[in-house]
Amino acid sequence: MGDYKSRGQYFPPVSAQLVNLVQLKPKEMVLDVACGYGNTAITACRKGAKVTGIDLTPKLLMLAREEEKIAGLSSINWKEGDVENLPFEDETFDIVLSTFGHIFASNQSLAAKEMVRVLKKGGRLGFSSWPSELLSERLSDVISKYNPFGETKEFKPGSWGSPDKIKRLLPELKELFFERGTIEIPCLSPNHYWNDSTHKAGYLMRIIGELKFQNKYDIIEKVRKEYLDALESYFLDNRLRFGYLLAIGKK
């Protein structure tokens, strides 16, 4: 799984920005989709919302419960489940959120329909995603290019970073608007980030591990060089700049 908490430690400001943009009010029913270790769910709960966090990975939910306890909270409903088949009745929530989570659903159209389905009439949907032209997706492209498992990608998470694609996926939403931001990650060099990623980023760890098993160290070196080339363009003053997109709409 990798060290998701370490990799996600720069997400809390995005969670706060998202919660503010959906104009969350105390006691509103909130669903955090693909909640990870709970950064957005906890942010919403601290604003007084009644929060449910759902994720496919039990280990992440366990970590989310620990984070909730550290925050001094105890009311969040943590639930195992899939964005493509949300275990809730129609129009259950006032707000549905996702911070870089739902974008990895294999069936994007179904994920979009499910998030809208569980949203009340007049409710707000808000999420963050990675634009396909910026750093996160460039790194994803490098990794996918040398994927030793031969997996075909019929979807790209970066599609959720395109306003035009979001409008097509979510035609039911009104008053849809977008806002951009940048996560800045301190590091001494692009190679420092590569080293950190190969020890903590689950998907990259899986790819590198398989290439080592196949004794394809030449391919690993190609991955490293292209990964570093992508990073170099976004490295300034000992910071890596990951641009993101926020989308907010009303049902």
Score class of each variant (00 low, 15 high):
Leu73Tyr: 05
Gly81Cys: 02
Gly249Val: 01
Lys222Thr: 11
Ser197Ile: 03
Lys145Cys: 01
Leu86Ser: 02
Ala71Met: 13
Ser197Ala: 14
Lys5Ile: 07
Ser74Asn: 15
Gly181Tyr: 08
Val19Pro: 03
Pro58Asn: 13
Met29Gly: 05
Thr152Arg: 08
Leu31Gly: 09
Gly126Leu: 05
Phe235Leu: 09
Leu204Gln: 10
Glu172Phe: 10
Asp32Tyr: 08
Val118Ile: 14
Gly161Phe: 04
Ser109Tyr: 13
Pro186Gln: 04
Asp3Ile: 09
Ala111Tyr: 03
Gly209Cys: 07
Leu169Lys: 01
Glu151Cys: 00
Ser162Gln: 02
Arg65Cys: 13
Val22Trp: 00
Arg168Met: 10
Ile143Asp: 00
Asn77Trp: 05
Asp3Gly: 08
Ala112Thr: 12
Phe93Pro: 04
Phe155Pro: 01
Thr99Val: 04
Gln17Lys: 10
Ser159Asn: 10
His199Asn: 08
Leu231Trp: 01
Asp90Leu: 11
Val83Met: 10
Tyr146Thr: 04
Leu97His: 07
Gly181Asp: 09
Pro12Asn: 09
Phe100Ser: 01
Asp237Glu: 14
Ser98Arg: 06
Asp229Gly: 02
Leu97Cys: 12
Tyr244Asp: 03
Val223Glu: 00
Phe93Asn: 07
Ser144Leu: 06
Ala105Phe: 06
Gly53Glu: 04
Ile185Lys: 10
Phe93Trp: 10
Lys167Arg: 15
Tyr37His: 12
Leu173Trp: 14
Gly202Ala: 13
Glu226Thr: 10
Ser15Gln: 11
Lys59Tyr: 12
Gly101Gln: 11
Arg224Lys: 14
His199Arg: 12
Asp218Val: 07
Tyr193Ser: 03
Leu135Cys: 09
Ser106Phe: 05
Phe100Pro: 01
Trp78Arg: 01
Leu119His: 06
Trp160Leu: 09
Arg138Pro: 06
Arg65Ala: 13
Glu154Gln: 09
Leu173Glu: 14
Lys121Gln: 15
Val22His: 00
Asp196Met: 15
Lys50Phe: 13
Asp32Ile: 07
Cys187Tyr: 05
Lys251Gln: 07
Arg180Lys: 15
Asp82Ala: 11
Arg241Cys: 11
Ala230Ser: 00
Arg180Gln: 14
Lys222Asp: 13
Ile76Tyr: 01
Gly202Val: 06
Asp164Arg: 09
Asp141Asn: 08
Pro190Gln: 02
